[in-house]
Design a protein around this nucleic acid. Structure first.
Lengths: 348, 348
DNA sequence: CGGTGATCCTAATGCGCATTAGTCACTAAT
DNA sequence: ATTAGTGACTAATGCGCATTAGGATCACCG
């Protein structure tokens, strides 16, 4: 056996050129499908490259203007809010599927807030690190689209409604408004008149959209005891808000939670207060995951295909990076999966 | 207002040189703390760089031999197993904290299996994309250390015991054996004699380590009805195995689950079968998270600081990349947080 | 007053690749 | 038979940075 194995050296185009007995430019032409070499030579070069296990250095590629072959993804959430969120891992896993096919890397970063996120975009841009970014958690007053415009960095906004002020950004979104309307429809049909929506972070575009829709739907039906309460998405706040609203003299008969974590925590809190689900109070989760099937009764939930969401977003971004023009893509409205946590309102 | 804003151009060292009235090399010296420029010039250059918002192009840096300023992280898990895992997000968030300080990027990829993972390492190496990698889920018969040795790619193995055959790899691990011993100690003291360990994926180093330790501890105390069952970490298998073992004529009085997801699902399954927790059966989760406090009774759990785990691993990797030598670092043994799911064994 | 270092800079080179501008041999056309 | 044209290459250049090899200027010493 040999002793210490010397770390392998990366083969370069020069090595290929030497082995194949051609110039380095010929290798470049051959490998990139450019004209200027005969088919014979092209094949030979390809074969040598294969044998040597050559891969283009992304650094060199990026330097000669070809882009970094990488896209960025920033998650702006305080570290302690990261908890048990199934949505993002699913999303990322979908994103990866598409990127991997095209050998694009995913640069990932977790930061505290949107200001930091903007700083990251600036840095990535200046450092020539990414060809585009995926933006999540769009806000009602969001500095990111302007910044990305300014930097000329291709971007896809995930989960935000299209914004005509930023024609350069692609958008992938679900129609929360429609989903909210259908949930309210369903609850109304079951006799529910007092409904509380335990929403997510205030300022997020989809939070506000859901709140607005709920208010509109309530108004349309003349329901005065329908409202939204914003939270930080944590199980703690989900439970706390649940306790608070159920201790009201006229407690709601239905609760809509903006994510699975709060729904589960809220259902548990309700049970502790002596409220039976769904006899006393119905519960709907705006995110489906294994979590919803870990409690009894299983939670009715709005189910969407988060991985597919990610795939779609990644596809849009690659299209944009390749020079395509921005589009607004709608993914299917989440579907309500009825389980044991929703039922006829008490007293109907 | 101006019409279409032209996308900003990235400033380069040449721009700085021009503005500061010095040569490009002087700029390089100044900015990198190399000798060869006066303090005056250095300050002036720094200021101009600041004004222009200059950041070094990682591509160019990497090309001139400085490394890619990026580390890699591959998660080899079938997409559908990704579910509700809190450990990885916490871990990644800790990793990021350390990397962000040093302006290192994190290249992240999800793949199906270890073979794909190896392919990713090869590609990253050949493409010059990363300076080092973080390896998770070490296995008993693992091809990755050999590969990383061969490529000369600095790496930190997270969660594996040190392996003297790979002196080039750093290791960050917790003493699962000690933790397992203490859990068994505790259960034994409460009178438990029939214990089932619902373990994670077979082949993972820490799974096997826990199984071995459990067997050893049982042997030491002459307990014959103690065993481990491996699973895929999913809530479904956790529940299924729980049902199977509890339907035994002599069911266990204590269950140890290798993660929080299975523990919660298992506790629910036990309840459905009419087993009361902890009166009929005690439950311990080998991972603490919000999940453990979403069910009643709250689950006793082995709690560790996953973010700190990540920080430690990232620090070791940066040290390694900077030319330091490999080390084996032990993080604190997870601490058992006693909640409502563990109690005196039935009939004691 | 010529030499000897320091000090502070500039010029030039290379990293791995894409690309543009030649070069050369050979064929078709005038 | 000279020229224009074409196919198949090679040489040379630049991307943005680090680095090495050279100047130029000045102070100090014998």
């Amino acid at each position: 056996m040999s002793g210490k194995r010397s770390p392998a050296r990366r083969p370069t185009m020069k090595d290929i050129a030497r082995h194949a007995g051609v110039s380095q430019s010929a290798v470049s032409f051959a490998l990139n499908g450019r004209p200027g070499v005969s088919e014979d030579t092209r094949d030979r070069v390809r074969q040598v490259a294969e044998e040597l296990g050559w891969r283009p250095s992304t650094a060199a590629r990026a330097l000669s203007g070809e882009g970094a072959a990488t896209v960025g993804f920033v998650l702006a959430r305080p570290a302690d809010t990261l908890g048990v969120d199934s949505f993002f891992l699913q999303l990322v896993s979908g994103i990866q599927e598409v990127l991997a096919e095209r050998h694009l890397g995913l640069l990932f970063q977790v930061v505290e807030d949107v200001a930091d996120e903007c700083a990251v975009y600036r840095r990535w841009w200046a450092e020539h690190r990414v060809d585009g970014v995926l933006v999540v958690d769009p806000r009602t007053d969001d500095p990111r689209p302007d910044l990305l415009d300014e930097l000329g960095l291709p971007a896809v906004v995930i989960g935000g409604a299209p914004d005509e002020r930023h024609p350069g950004l692609s958008t992938v979104w679900a129609d929360d408004a429609g989903a909210m309307a259908s949930v309210v429809d369903g609850l109304y049909a079951l006799g529910h008149r007092r409904i509380v929506h335990i929403a997510g972070l205030p300022g997020l575009a989809h939070t506000e959209r859901r709140i607005r829709t709920l208010r509109a739907e309530a108004g349309r039906r003349g329901l005065s005891e329908v409202r939204s309460v914003t939270t930080d998405y944590s199980d703690a706040e989900g439970a706390a808000v649940t306790r608070r609203v159920l201790e009201d003299p006229a407690p709601p008969t239905a609760l809509i939670y903006d994510n699975d974590v709060m729904a589960v925590a809220g259902a548990a809190a309700a049970a502790e207060l002596g409220f039976s689900v769904p006899a006393d109070v119905s519960v709907v989760s705006w995110e489906d995951s294994a979590l919803c099937r870990m409690v009894k009764p299983w939670l009715s939930a709005l189910s969407r295909d988060s991985a597919e969401f990610g795939r779609t977003a990644a596809r849009e971004l690659t299209a944009l990076v390749d020079g395509g023009s921005a589009r607004a893509v709608r993914v299917p409205v989440p579907r309500l999966v009825e389980r044991g946590s929703t039922g006829v309102a008490r007293g109907v």
